[in-house]
Design a protein around this nucleic acid. Structure first.
Lengths: 135, 135
DNA sequence: CTGTTTGTTATAGTTTTTCTATAACAAACA
DNA sequence: TGTTTGTTATAGAAAAACTATAACAAACAG
């Protein structure tokens, strides 16, 4: 898996790394059972510190997306086909998406345009979508 | 406008403040022409420093949502009915929502559930929605 | 003109976060 | 037994977040 990070961005490196892995899972480029590179290896590849990778992996572990173990390394344990998430995850997620949707609307994006964009992104994931918007 | 901030959260105070204002605009509790409290006043009300409020207001200004001027204070200049945003705003927003949608899908949320939740949130804004999902 | 209100800028300090650097420890397994 | 991997410990540098005071500058009411 090829990763590029913005070193001079305002998003922390470990957060970017975490985001890229999450996207890879949603995109179907990572599946349950797949291994992520060893922390030392990935750190060397990206030219960053081992602990920064470690922090990203720890985030993913606490989110329930990967399992960490010695010798085995980091392994994906959740993807789009694993089944519904633990209780509360959806509601907590909704709270965060609300702010982002509010921003779009406040800035003048047409709500139907927002719907269209969201739908297109979801359709792009292998999990697909079972609900299509109609004008 | 009553605001509550999580002092012990992981989200910076100025960011929370900015988010609450954005949501107020999307919710229709703030319209073009409305004034926000003076920085000193709001800081006193919230029990935080003036510069923290200032930083939030500066963010909102750079996002094109408010205008700042001496004596006049902070005034809303954009809302859901002001018209389409400057070029690039929508695409930049889409990039950010993609990560959030990826997280939902990676964690196992049903895409149709995601669509439903997004639609319900959008419908809750006064700007409403012109596209309804159908099962 | 005077005084008040408001944002703006400056300076400085503390605390927390981010990132790095080294090293040692511990479990798993060939 | 040795290698690979995550884990933990320490330490430090740099940046971000937040606070505290103070002064400056424009706008406007009186």
């Amino acid at each position: 898996m090829i990763l590029t990070l913005e070193v001079d961005g305002d998003v922390p490196l470990y957060q970017q790394l975490r985001d890229r892995v999450v996207e890879a899972i949603a995109d179907g480029r990572l599946h349950v059972g797949d291994s992520l590179p060893a922390t030392r290896q990935l750190a060397a590849d990206l030219g960053i510190n081992m602990h920064t990778v470690n922090k990203a992996y720890d985030l993913l572990r606490r989110e329930g997306l990967i399992r960490l173990a010695r010798r085995t390394g980091a392994v994906v344990i959740r993807d789009a086909f694993t089944g519904p998430p633990p209780a509360g995850v959806a509601d907590e997620w909704e709270e965060r998406v609300r702010t982002l949707l509010a921003e779009a609307v406040a800035k003048g994006l047409d709500p139907s345009d927002v719907t269209r964009r969201v739908q297109r992104i979801l359709d792009g994931f292998p999990a697909g979508s079972s609900v299509r918007p109609t004008t």
